[in-house]
Design a protein around this nucleic acid. Sequence first.
DNA 1: ACTTGACCTCAAGCCGACTTGAAGTAGGAC
DNA 2: GTCCTACTTCAAGTCGGCTTGAGGTCAAGT
Lengths: 129, 129
Amino acid sequence: MQELGIGEVVRRSGVPASTLRYYEERGLIGSVGRRGLTRVFDQGVFQRLALISVGRAAGFTLEEIAVMFAPDGSPRLDRAVLTSKADELDATIRRLTVMRDGLRHAASCPAPTHMECPKFRRLLERLTG
Amino acid sequence: MQELGIGEVVRRSGVPASTLRYYEERGLIGSVGRRGLTRVFDQGVFQRLALISVGRAAGFTLEEIAVMFAPDGSPRLDRAVLTSKADELDATIRRLTVMRDGLRHAASCPAPTHMECPKFRRLLERLTG
DNA sequence: ACTTGACCTCAAGCCGACTTGAAGTAGGAC
DNA sequence: GTCCTACTTCAAGTCGGCTTGAGGTCAAGT
């Protein structure tokens, strides 16, 4: 497995070195070791970074992400936790979908204010209800 | 339109008073006026709160939400902005969907570590790629 | 030998989104 | 008239997620 310096990881992932160090400190990514002082990463780091980025977009904290995808391959990661996170995500996705439709519609709606558009209000009701 | 005190809004929405005041200060919700010192809201505040909550879940800042849904009914809200936010949301939704599937699968996958599961790795590739 | 560049650590700072706390006011019940 | 409760302001504090800066190490190049 090819070994990478932090600079390489920065270049290929776009994630700043400070963030990589921070993630390592928080236990989210593991450098496979050190060459002298400097961290050595393997290819897997890119997947983990993708995972972290999506997790963040999903609204999970770094803490939660660390628990969900423990870097060691996870000590018998609790299925119930995963399932409930997936359920959370389902709810989020549904809400985001409604919001996206709302935005899309608002972009093309001729009503003077959004609130005057019945379609928009119906979407809102789907959010509140 | 029925007028509500802040306490009522707190009770019905679950949003703390401090947050409501903060949102008002940031221009995200408008109280229709004051009765003496105290803020008076109308029913519409609940929709706006729902909007804000979904917007936050979608990863937008309060600033962005304020711009998207200006409280005054929005001074000719730029359609391009809305459309591009909708596109952002589309991308987010796709990624979250992949993540949800990943979590769902991880919850039922017998592989000792996630990375050893080919299905999980394929999902990861959909995230990275 | 010495500079350059890429890396390191550690502490402090910053931003967004709130929360908390102290101190004050306004209106009704008694 | 004074007590209670619900509200108010304003400043400061908190937390998560990083970033920045000062000062140090190491390897390679000239």
